[in-house]
């Protein structure tokens, strides 16, 4: 008997006298099909304006910095300002996301854009989020050419652009978006939920930012 059959056999044997297999299969198929939502915290159920404010407040509480701009055209200026303020080199790593193409880079003549995944040598990376979660100030990132996963983790500074309209109240709304994009039961290769910059408490339980991932997370909300 294969290891697989043996393990599954032991599990089945442990169930004593389970309901007929058909009933159990139906129960499982129903749950997978309907994916019931469970308990959604009240604070995730705010109307749009308050929701965006909660998202910003939460993200800041968990160590991100925040900027709000009126349009995509202002993103490049905000990025440049961020780099200048921190004396960072005027070079960013960026994927192929179309929304980021129209971010007004042409006005920032000194800024160098490197395209494709990060090779570990980048000081700053810029990505576009798929969605935000107001409940916890979290951004949701999907892998792919538009926003390579390595940009989320290798640069010292990670700048995430998010459309205000993509900020949802809860994680469950993000799953609805992902299902719409990918189909039910399908996921991108990697989906990263990111809440604040990388941290560690492993030395004497002292929380320090910038463990292995970015030391700083800057979120730009485009209204």
């Amino acid at each position: 008997m294969s290891a697989r059959d043996s393990i599954l056999g032991k599990i089945r044997a442990s169930m004593g006298s389970p309901a007929s297999n058909d009933d159990r299969r139906r129960t499982v198929a129903d749950r997978l099909g309907s994916a019931p939502a469970g308990i959604i915290p009240e604070r995730a159920k705010l109307a749009e304006a308050e929701r965006i404010e909660l998202f910003c407040a939460m993200a800041e509480q968990f160590g991100a910095t925040l900027a709000r701009v009126g349009s995509y055209g202002e993103v490049a200026g905000e990025v440049s300002g961020y780099l200048r303020d921190r004396n960072l080199p005027a070079t960013i790593r960026i994927g192929a996301d179309k929304r980021l193409k129209a971010a007004g880079w042409e006005t920032e003549k000194n800024l160098e854009l490197r395209h494709g995944p990060s090779d570990g040598s980048d000081m700053t990376g810029v990505s576009h989020a798929t969605a935000g979660i107001a409940e916890t100030g979290t951004v949701a990132m999907m892998s792919g050419q538009d926003n390579p996963t390595t940009i989320n983790f290798l640069p010292e500074h990670h700048i995430v652009v998010i459309k205000a309209g993509d900020i949802k109240g809860d994680m469950e709304s993000v799953w609805a978006m992902v299902r719409e994009k990918q189909g039910k039961g399908e996921m991108p290769r990697a989906l990263n939920l990111i809440t604040g910059p990388s941290r560690s408490g492993d030395i004497e339980q002292t929380i320090l930012l910038g463990a292995h991932g970015p030391r700083a997370l800057h979120v730009i909300v485009v209204d």
């Binding site: 939460m58 968990f62 409940e135 916890t136 979290t138 996921m187 991108p188 290769r189 990697a190 989906l191 990263n192 939920l193 990111i194 809440t195 604040g196 910059p197 990388s198 941290r199 991932g213």
Partner: peptide
């Protein structure tokens, strides 16, 4: 409220 990185790999 959330850990920093929650990653779903498929």
């Amino acid at each position: 409220d959330m850990s920093v990185y929650t990653t779903f790999s498929t």
